[in-house]
Amino acid sequence: MTTLLYTHPICQEHDTGYGHPECAARLTAILGALKTAPFAALEWREAPSATVEQLTRIHTPAHVERTLARIPKHGYHAIDGDTIVSPHSGEAALRAAGAVCAAVDAILRGEADNAFCAVRPPGHHAEPNQAMGFCLFDNAAIGAAHARAAHGLERVAVIDFDVHHGNGTQTAFEHDPAYLYISTHQAYIYPGTGRRDERGVGNIVNVPLLANSGSTDLRQAWARDIEPALRQFKPQFILISAGFDAHRMDPLAELDFTEDDYRWLTERIAAIATEFCRGRIASVLEGGYNLPALAASAVAHVKALMAATSGLAKPDPEDANGRAP
């Protein structure tokens, strides 16, 4: 069937200041690549704004009010040293969270199998009551909560392969067994959370990787930790926090993934989604700060999502056995 692409021009107006790594050019690079011929079958949709009801399933009303009140009329405001907002940041953040909710709705209404939300600001560091780490609202968590609240799903999984731990998503879900949160990330860098022994109510699976971990380590993590947890949980819907900063060329970390690793990982996730939940996946952009690496990785990810919908990409069973290419 179909893969949807949600985005909105305002997401490129979220200006973080000169030289900031989380910049509009990231989206320009991804969207430019997704406008080429191999992606002709992608169905582009405009991201709506999230409602306060959708946001406050994850965030406190005070956080939503405070964050929107901090958006300056001119210039910039630094929420913290990393997290800079400017006049269009509020609307961009609302559209980013709204994109994921709309993707969840469209997929659960049967209009598409899966979706990629090319939006910014990213979300997974945003705590229920605190913006941080480039993030204002936790887009993936808000989408997961929407699948529960608006569609009555009982088991929703969030897989986060951004190189940083998604502290916000973990905090949002660590007491609620209706959600499974799985994160691979580099140990000992920002934000410092995500140790293996942070397990929530048995619904948090943290797989910290040491600096210089690459393809082989990713495959081991999948086989030992990620796939067993997903199989046991039997998700009815999968969200992906798709950060591409574990790429070997990314300036903000030291993992050694390649774009082909993102193809491989997306195929594995899609196979699980096909087995347990009719292939339902909503993926949302998180980090990724080397523009060519980001675009190539997002291309590999979206290609694998599209291939999963056509049923053409039957994953090679040998390739699933944890072998590096």
């Binding site: 790594p21 040293g81 990393d82 780490g133 480039f134 940083h164 860098i189 920002y190 934000p191 903000l252």
Partner: peptide, 13 residues
């Protein structure tokens, strides 16, 4: 160096 306090080092500071 990259650390756990900020997502990107504040080089000027």
């Amino acid at each position: 160096r990259l650390g756990s306090r900020a997502i990107a080092p504040h080089y000027d500071e």
